[in-house]
């Protein structure tokens, strides 16, 4: 491939991918390893495992608890996350050849989703700036995280609507990374910016509040079955504390 910029991006994305997968995997492993010694589901809670799966499903897909908390926050948060999910799925076309049928079908929705994502992020940031109690709890990293995501969305939309980039070349570059058959990355400052920001997001994922994504599945107040009278629940470290009989 030759050009130093292409090499730099190739290395950046290998590194970002490894950090994302290994780092997040490590964090998830510590969540799995750490026991939950006491039954603490927030009740009313499901009494079966199937019920818990539904509860988590509603939480992850519809943000059920957030909906109860605050409608504006729910609307902005949900818009952003659904937008992001569709945008990510749309991007699968840069990593598959031939493009899967449903990914092709999804393309037009993915475009609108980009706007939804940016609008949701803007709403969340406005809230952080203008609602006194949210401003009070915001750290610099909370603002920067929104800036980062917003910049990713805007550079992405910029390449779609303002200054087209050579997406065929981009696809060739990423397929090359996947199959270790390295290809040059089109030289385009907006593309560079978009990719650097995405790599940064991948790099900080395992050491930031982005861990809320795996975290929600491991939250004992949400993922425990309400059955403490029927089953004796004892963590390994606690079992040794029972008096001998």
């Amino acid at each position: 491939m030759g050009a130093p910029m292409s090499i730099a991006f190739a290395l950046l994305f290998y590194a970002a991918f490894l950090v994302l997968v290994l780092g997040t995997g490590y964090r998830i492993a510590t969540y799995i390893r750490t026991p939950a010694p006491l039954k603490i589901p927030t009740t009313p809670a499901p009494t079966t495992r199937g019920g818990v799966a539904l509860r988590l499903g509603r939480e992850v897909l519809f943000f059920e608890s957030l909906f109860k908390a605050n409608l504006w926050l729910w609307a902005a948060g949900w818009l952003f996350h659904v937008g992001l999910a569709l945008v990510l799925l749309r991007h699968l076309r840069y990593f598959t050849e031939p493009v899967w049928g449903w990914v092709a079908w999804l393309q037009p929705f993915g475009v609108y989703a980009g706007f939804a994502m940016a609008a949701g992020l803007a709403g969340l940031w406005m809230r952080r700036i203008f609602v006194a109690r949210v401003r009070y709890i915001s750290t610099p990293s909370d603002h920067l995280m929104l800036v980062l995501l917003l910049a990713i969305a805007l550079t992405g939309l910029g390449m779609k609507y303002v200054a087209h980039t050579d997406i065929v070349g981009v696809k060739r570059f990423f397929l090359g990374l996947m199959y270790f058959d390295w290809q040059p990355l089109p030289a385009d400052p907006v593309l560079y910016a978009h990719l650097v920001l995405v790599a940064l997001l991948m790099l900080i994922f395992p050491i930031s509040k982005l861990l809320h994504a795996p975290g929600v599945f491991f939250s004992p107040s949400r993922n425990q079955v309400d059955d403490p009278r029927e089953h004796r629940h004892v963590a390994p470290w606690a079992a040794g504390l029972d008096p001998k009989v």
Partner: peptide
């Protein structure tokens, strides 16, 4: 405690400062 209680471990990491709880 972080090693013994999954609740504490996950709760320390997962908060995004969304403010849903703030006025509750």
């Amino acid at each position: 405690l972080l090693d013994k209680y999954r609740s504490l471990k996950v709760y320390m990491d997962a908060c995004v400062h969304c403010g849903a709880c703030a006025d509750k």
